[in-house]
Computed example of a mutant assay.
Amino acid sequence: MPRRVYSERLGEIGHDQFEAAVQRLGLGRFLGAEPITSGLFGQNVFVTTSEGKFVLRGAPHWVKGAGDEEYYQEDRWQFTKERYFAQQLHEHTNTPVPWPMLHDQSNDIFGWPYLIMPRMPGVSLDERTVLRELAPADRRSVAAALGRNLAEMQRLTSPIAGDFGVESIALEEYPEGAVGSIAREADTFVQACGDRITLDEATWIAAAAAVAGGDGLITYVHCDYKLGNLTLLHDGGEWRVSGLFDFHEARFADGALDIVRVACGYLDSEPDMARIFLDAYGKGIDPAHLTLYVLNDRLKIWSWFTHPDHADPRLKGLTFRRWAQRYIDGLLALI
């Protein structure tokens, strides 16, 4: 049987393995597979069967609990969590998610468990390709579509703020609440950065967390809501979000968390679109919460892209505060 490497993470996979997987899940006869070049982790493969077009997602992330120093293998966590949040969105909102999301928890076919889900219609763009391929009017329509879709996602609410526990593999409440959990997460990234965050910067971040206050309405939060994790379709003279995926960071928290990644991307590439996005979203945002959420999001990026193993030359010579402050100022000016 033909074999091919579909990504460094997934390794070499044979047609017989794909055939076994789709037959087990009742998806017809295997016809073909193609690698997906986008995405940071290389977990996904396009699969075509006699029943349609699908995405296979495999090799789940390892996990690290609150008291753990190292990541360890726990194959149940990522895909159980992703399926849960996709199902909740499917059942309680009109958000276009890949459903049904079929989960085979055994590892006898590939060496790891996997999901198979429908391939969502439309095109997948990022901040660069949307500028290159779409006219200004289309880009404005896309920005508005992102805001409307975000508001629709947040029709899914919860009585508690929380995430899936890495031991229980079930939804667990944050003991410190939604805002407190982000303050804790930000401090974790500060510690991970070491001397790439100065003492003055750490004090500044801690002060922002201290004044952020308590929780408001708790909604679904994707935590990586951006162009690269959705598909878009031009329909009836305007653009709409036609698919949302990659739920591995999803949780229940303050919905304002999800404006940050898109809005900061627009501040970098086309600032006028940030206003269109936020107007279409149409919800009030607490300035103190937003400041903390921007800091936390930028810390994630700073932690990764200033690390010696994958340093981004665009950040060379900058301090964290100098780099992050313009995003805080830019978003606060828009709300």
Score class of each variant (00 low, 15 high):
E173Q: 15
S168H: 10
R155C: 12
R155L: 15
R184G: 08
D126M: 07
M117G: 05
A145K: 01
R128E: 14
R155W: 05
L171Q: 08
R184V: 12
A186P: 01
A178D: 08
N149Y: 05
P175V: 15
I182A: 02
T198E: 13
C223W: 11
G122A: 07
M153N: 09
T188V: 11
A178P: 07
R128N: 14
R148P: 01
M117D: 02
G180H: 05
D138M: 10
T129H: 00
L125D: 00
G216D: 10
P175S: 15
N149S: 13
V190T: 12
A144M: 07
Q191E: 12
C193E: 01
A208V: 14
D138P: 04
T219L: 05
D215L: 08
V142W: 02
T219K: 01
A186G: 06
G162L: 02
A151W: 01
Y220R: 12
A186Y: 00
C193S: 08
A144Y: 00
L217A: 12
D138A: 14
E152H: 06
E201V: 10
A208T: 15
I160T: 11
Y225T: 13
F189Y: 14
T219S: 05
A192N: 11
E127S: 04
R139P: 03
A183Q: 01
A192H: 08
S181R: 14
I218H: 06
D215Y: 09
G216A: 09
R139C: 08
A206W: 00
Y114G: 10
A208P: 06
E173V: 13
R184T: 14
T203I: 10
M120H: 01
G214W: 02
L134C: 07
F164L: 10
R148Y: 05
